[in-house]
Every structure is written in structure tokens, then in C-alpha cells.
Design a binder for these strands. Structure first.
Lengths: 334, 334
DNA sequence: TTGTAAGCGTTATCAT
DNA sequence: ATGATAACGCTTACAA
């Protein structure tokens, strides 16, 4: 016997397919008690499992959404997708998480695949090269929410951190601690998030009348970071404070410090953008800029669900503040 | 205009649906050059996207698999799912990752949902209460691979670490470093992984003629760990070495040490089961037992794909060795 | 209160 | 070399 279908249940219960369907969709309104129990029993006995594929095909909605994250290795991405899943599961919507690995080609593939699977909407950490695809989605009125990065010209909701302000206050904190030679390390300035962080950095220095030294603006691929840090510390007056642009960069900075025998908090002060699970447990504890990842995920999910249900969206751009959690690593150097 | 379907393409190209379908499935055998190009153009112009739902319904396979991990907050789970995804995407199969949160109820829901979505197979980190569900899957000949945990009586492939042996050699290493009062901290002994680790621990002590003290066998929920550690260090002769059973437990041990001002490597030595991204960067660097998570994920995926393609599977139980990476935290105390 | 039948967007069989 | 037509398993008017 092949897979059990609704027809099998109907036959066993001695009713028609539509009645079984009514039952499954809890439209008992006018159903006689005994038909109900007969169907119930038939389902039990046959161990019938409905086929969502068929149902979705008919209903033209899958109760499934997709989220395409930039790089799943970032703690931020994991936290956001957890929030999105938690939100949707409470609304009986399933979430498929895809990892674009910051690769526009992969991202494009995933968008196509998810749309082919007829997901009802998409949350995307966008990359500039795929701008036209996003425009197309929006033109089609397809439900979509962008996350973390801003691409100008996109008329769709965006949920992101206040990167500029957050970085500004981290740098201001460094300055308050007496630092003047402050470096910022980011991945290549190809996405808005990184640009905004760099801008916040510049702004803070300018407001404090500190010259901006190009040498202190380090931007490179993760693989190149070690050699960039070498250069950074080879200059005449190396920085006394470093802001690491995200968690993966922190690992690089720590690795560099370890190899060069530079002690954090002594050789240089350190702040990292992102929540780091071990930040408070290492020695010295690391000062972090915490993003509201969970809240942001929830908000994005909510905005997506609204679109799916054809509800109006208030604002297109939703910025979330970050929290500077000051620990020993950013204190005045001994 | 609603969504573009194959019928629209057919009409535009002046051919029948079947011809378009042939084209899409690359059966050009007998197709005239000009029909081909006409179809190609129609697809471009209309921006046609196929509907996998309809196709899957007809073909009775979705080219999608599911993986249900025990708890996504473990690094191990993340690494395994990455491997599974990477493997399947190369075989044009999509992967849906679900997080059971070590909750059998959630797990059950996910299994039902994934089967309703007609996924072609499942990789599961199983939990004992759902044994009957697994048995049912196997009875139906549904492709399934179990991961990480062994449930007896399941006639389906299992991919897991050599937990016993790995723990044994970690404890032996402690003993070689002169430790005799060695504690092991695990989550509740409800799954085989934890039992196997405890057994390896006992075995190593026994072989070295060291008495097994019940006080040194700490098993509790993460939330209770702090108070259990309190008790552990309140006894007359507290341990000089601790094996943390996984990455989440490591965080608890570090938190405890920090609060009590116990320095790792001085107050007690430490080894942790699992790969920890920061292990080599903290002070002191932490000795870890590294599981072959990526390899295991690949192997599980391969075994699943074989089943989906009705190929024979050689062995049912596949154990992977772990690597003890010795760093400063497990050295002889100063 | 329940049944009939059409249709969702494909693929597959068989004609032509 | 291409087309008609019947599935796939479900939902939903509408009929009874």
C-alpha cells in the first residue's frame, strides 16, 4: 500500500473527500457527531498524514517563509534567525533559514529556490549586486523585509541597528578614557553597516578635534586582517585602542594579540561590535556593543507577516539602538 | 495579471504546455531549434518562475530534506548542519534545519511538519520519548539517519562520536598530569552521549585505581549547574580538575570560576568536550575534545541520500574518533 | 449535513 | 517533434 491519502480515509470512513477535508480544517459546524468520530477513527487506523504540498498548491500559500542571512557564522545572524523562527512558529508559519555566505550568487540562487517553493515572504540581508532582483520583488508586491543593511532606493521595510550612533558612543568612550590613537577594523566597506560604523567613528573623532589618520581605518577581508594588523602596529605611533567591527574580526584581533604577545587592556584597549557569548568570561572581560538582535528579528518577522496578510506598514525604516556594555578591556591603559 | 504559469509561457510561445515542460527538463532530444528559442524568449519576457510545489506533487519527491538538531545553541549542531547543507546543495537538494531545543514535543511537531511537507528524508538528533515515532518511520521504510545519540533497538544508520574513548583519554591526560580528584560535569544523563562520556570517565579512573566519588559526578540542567558547582567546591577535598561535558557547560564553569575568583589552571585544571571557537585565544588557552562535526555531517548526509536513492547501506553504526587538543588549561597545577 | 466536481501548476503517457 | 489529457492530493463553490 502506497501513501495514505484523503481518499483512503474518506472510503474507510464511508464519507466523501470533502467531508474529510472539512473535518481536517475544523469546520465542524454542521457535522454530525458520528461522522466526526468515524473520520477520526479512520485517520487513526490508517495513520493518515496530510500532504501540505497539495494543500498549498490549491490554497496558493505555503505558510512558510524564508530568511536569507549574510553569514551564519556571525552570532548576530543566528540570534536574528532564532527570533524570526520563534515568532513565526507561534503563528503557525514555518521558517527556512538559508546562508548566503555573503555571496551574491548564492543569495540569488536561494531567492529563486525559495520563490519556486512558493514561500509566502522573505527576510533578506541584502547585498548590492542583487539590487535589481530586490526591485523586481518589490515591483511584484512580493512580501519582503530587509535586514541589517540598507540599499538606497528600495521601497521596502528595513530593520537595522543604529550603527552610526553606537559606534560614535564607543569611540567617545575611548576618548573619555584618554585615548587619542584609535583604530577601527572592519570588513571591506561594501555594505552600509560597515560604512555607518566607520562614519560614527569619524564623527566622534572630529567632534573631539582628533585628526583622522587613514592608517587607523583598517578594512580588509578576514583572510587579510592579520597582515593589515601587522602594518597597523608597525607604524610609528600605533593605536592604543581598537574597535573591532564584528565578532569574526574580534577573533582575528585576539589571534594577532596572542601571537605578538600584546596583552589586551595593556598594549591596547578593545571594544567589539556584536554580542559575544564569552565576552564577560575572558580575561580581561571585553567591552561590547550589543545589538538588539532578538528584538530586530521579531520586528522583521512581524513586518513580514503584516505584508503577507495585506496589512499596512507604518514606517519603512526601523532602527534599533545598541547598548555599550563597558568592561575592563576598554579601560584606560595601565 | 496573476502569477505566470507554464500555460502562459506555452501560449506566448505558441506551443503546448508539454513542450514547455520538456524544455524545462532539458529533454531537447527532438526539439526544433526555433521552438526552443521561442520558449526561451517567452520565459525571459514573462519572467516565468516554475512552481516546485506543483512539480513535487506530481513527482512525489521534493528534493528537500530535513535535519532536526537537539539544540542549535551548541556549536556542534551548527557545524553538523552546515556540513549537511553543503553536501546536499551539491546534489541539488535543499535542507531545512529545525531546532528541537531538546524538547521531544517540539521534535515531534517538526517531524510531522517536515513529513507533511513531503521532505524526502530526515536527519534526527533523537530523544528517547519519541522512540515509537522513529520506529514507525523505519517501519515505513522512510529514509532517516540518526545523529549523535544512540537509541537501542533502532534499525537505522547512526552517526556519532566515540564519546567513551574520547572522554577516557581526556581523563587519562588529567591523571598523567598528576590529578586524582577529577570531576565531570554533564547535563542530565538522559541521552546516550552523556552516558558514554560518563562511562569513559569511570573507566579511566578505575583503570588507574582511583576511587570514583559520587560527588564528582555532577549532572544537572544548565540552570542548576551553578548551585551544583557550589556544592562541588564546598566539599572537603574539592576537585583539582574538571571535565565540562559540552560548550554550554563550559560557559557555566567559567562563570562560576569568575564569580568565586578561582583561576583556571591554578585553582583547577579544565578540559571541555566540544570545539570552542575562542578556546585557543583565552587565557589560559583551554584544552578541548574536538568532535569531527563536519565529517559527521557529511557522512550522515551521504547515508541519507543513499537511502533516498534506494541504495544499500553498509554499516548501521558509524563512530567517529575525537581529537584531544591539549592546551594550558589542563596542565599540572602550579 | 454531506457529496459532486472543478481546479491549483506541474509531469507523463500516449497519440499524432 | 509536439499536443491532449489524465493524473498528483487537496480545497471550495455549489448542489443535493
Amino acid at each position: 500500500m502506497g501513501k495514505i491519502t484523503m481518499a483512503d480515509v474518506a472510503e474507510k470512513a464511508g464519507v466523501s473527500k470533502s467531508t474529510v477535508s472539512q473535518f481536517l480544517n475544523k469546520r465542524y459546524h454542521y457535522m454530525r457527531e458520528d461522522t466526526r468520530t468515524r473520520i477520526e477513527e479512520a485517520i487513526k487506523e490508517l495513520n493518515y498524514q496530510p500532504n501540505y504540498l497539495a494543500r498549498s498548491l490549491k490554497q496558493k500559500r505555503t505558510s512558510t517563509v524564508g530568511i536569507i542571512v549574510g553569514n551564519i557564522m556571525h552570532r548576530f545572524s543566528t540570534e536574528v534567525s532564532r527570533a524570526v523562527e520563534d515568532y513565526f512558529i507561534q503563528h503557525d508559519v514555518h521558517t527556512i533559514v538559508c546562508n548566503a555566505d555573503n555571496n551574491p550568487e548564492k543569495e540569488k540562487k536561494y531567492i529563486e529556490m525559495l520563490r519556486a517553493k512558493q514561500v509566502d515572504g522573505l527576510i533578506i540581508f541584502p547585498t548590492a549586486p542583487n539590487l535589481d532582483i530586490y526591485q523586481q520583488l518589490i515591483r511584484e508586491n512580493y512580501p519582503v523585509v530587509f535586514m541589517d543593511r540598507k540599499l538606497s532606493g528600495l521601497k521596502a521595510p528595513l530593520v537595522a541597528s543604529e550603527n552610526n550612533e553606537a559606534t560614535w558612543s564607543a569611540i567617545q568612550h575611548f576618548i573619555d578614557q584618554g585615548h587619542e590613537r584609535i583604530a577601527i577594523v572592519t570588513e571591506p566597506l561594501t555594505i552600509s553597516t560597515r560604512l555607518e560604523r566607520r562614519d560614527g567613528y569619524k564623527q566622534a573623532l572630529e567632534e573631539n578635534g582628533i585628526e583622522i589618520k587613514p592608517d587607523f581605518l583598517v578594512s580588509a577581508e578576514i583572510k587579510q586582517i592579520q597582515q593589515e594588523l601587522e602594518k597597523l602596529f608597525a607604524i610609528e605611533s600605533p593605536p592604543t585602542a581598537i574597535l573591532a567591527g564584528n565578532d569574526l574580526l574580534l577573533i582575528e584581533v585576539l589571534k594577532f594579540a596572542k601571537e605578538k604577545n600584546l596583552k589586551i587592556g595593556e598594549a591596547f584597549a578593545l571594544i567589539v561590535f556584536d554580542n559575544i557569548p564569552f565576552a564577560h568570561l575572558v580575561d580581561p572581560p571585553v567591552t561590547t556593543i550589543k545589538q538588539s538582535s532578538y528584538l530586530m528579528g521579531e520586528r522583521a518577522a512581524e513586518l513580514l507577516l503584516k505584508q503577507i496578510n495585506n496589512q499596512k506598514i507604518e514606517a519603512l525604516e526601523m532602527r534599533f539602538p545598541c547598548e555599550l556594555i563597558i568592561r575592563d578591556s576598554s579601560k584606560r591603559l595601565k
